[in-house]
């Protein structure tokens, strides 16, 4: 009976000592973590898609708290998540306008003029490396879908020879922008009523030879726009969406049909 008592007391004392030691060590060598990190992580969607450019939601939360990433950095969560995170971080969430990717080329099989029967590897970067394009236009979409392969949300598809973004699915993660070797993809506001679907920097006559929907740089749209939102630079029209009122006069006047109405 006595031996049992001794053992119990000994174990209890050892347990107490270890407990005290652990508390002391725990306090002494504590790793400082920002409580906000866990809170931010709480509001992130948690599917670790990597669309923000970080390794996953944990890494993103750490980056937001460290001030490396913007509070509206999660492309999947959008505005509601950005607002919550902004509350935690004590900053104003910039009025994060929802953006989507847009392919600045309208040269599909009906409009663009084919150049050759390309038989190399069906990949945009590969075609660029051999400097051979299946289309006569040197600036347009090659249509091999490197962007579609890069999209984690299945939002880009090559339709009729040219890549098209499904705005409803696009989370504006920007992976297609880096994947496109022709630098044809850019963000536009999700509610942008129209966009210029051409990137050809050649002069009008040269464009007309290679594509029937190419911007010929005629500046009709520039003259039409009452808000002064369209500028023609390097023979291609650019729309400034801050100024654009969405009146649609440019779409009506464009002789080449290079400015297109976007499906909502």
């Amino acid at each position: 009976m006595q031996s049992i008592l001794i053992a119990t007391v000994a174990v209890a004392i050892i347990g107490l000592l270890i407990g005290v030691l652990l508390v002391i060590v725990g306090n002494k060598f504590k790793v400082e973590t920002d409580p906000r990190e866990a809170a931010v992580r709480e509001f992130l969607p948690g599917n670790n898609c990597g669309g923000c450019g970080y390794a996953g939601c944990d890494a993103m939360a750490a980056a937001i708290v460290a001030g490396e990433a913007p509070v509206s950095g999660c492309p999947v969560g959008g505005d509601p998540v950005a607002e919550q995170i902004a509350n935690i971080m004590g900053v104003e969430a910039e009025e994060g306008e929802k953006k989507v990717a847009f392919v600045k080329c309208g040269g599909d099989c009906e409009h663009a003029v084919p150049k050759c029967n390309y038989i190399g590897i069906r990949d945009c970067a590969s075609a660029m490396a051999s400097s051979i394009s299946p289309w006569k236009c040197d600036y347009g979409c090659l249509g091999f879908g490197s962007c579609a392969a890069a999209c984690p949300f299945d939002a880009i598809h090559v339709i009729n020879g040219v890549a098209r973004v499904d705005s409803a699915r696009c989370k504006a993660c920007g992976k297609c922008i880096t994947a496109c070797p022709k630098h044809l993809i850019e963000f536009v506001p999700a509610d942008a009523p129209h966009a210029v679907a051409c990137s050809n920097k050649d002069r009008g006559p040269a464009v007309k030879k290679v594509c029937s929907s190419g911007c010929i740089g005629c500046r009709l749209c520039e003259k039409q726009c009452e808000a002064g939102a369209i500028k023609v630079e390097n023979n291609v029209a650019h729309i400034d969406y801050e100024k654009c009122t969405g009146c649609g006069k440019c779409v009506e006047k464009c002789p080449a049909g290079a400015i297109t109405k976007r499906k909502k």
């Binding site: 190399g120 590897i121 990949d123 970067a125 590969s126 660029m128 490396a129 051999s130």
Partner: peptide, 13 residues
Amino acid sequence: RPLMQLFKQTKAA
């Protein structure tokens, strides 16, 4: 297999 084409592209990348 289009090996050389792939190597050319990779080298360029």
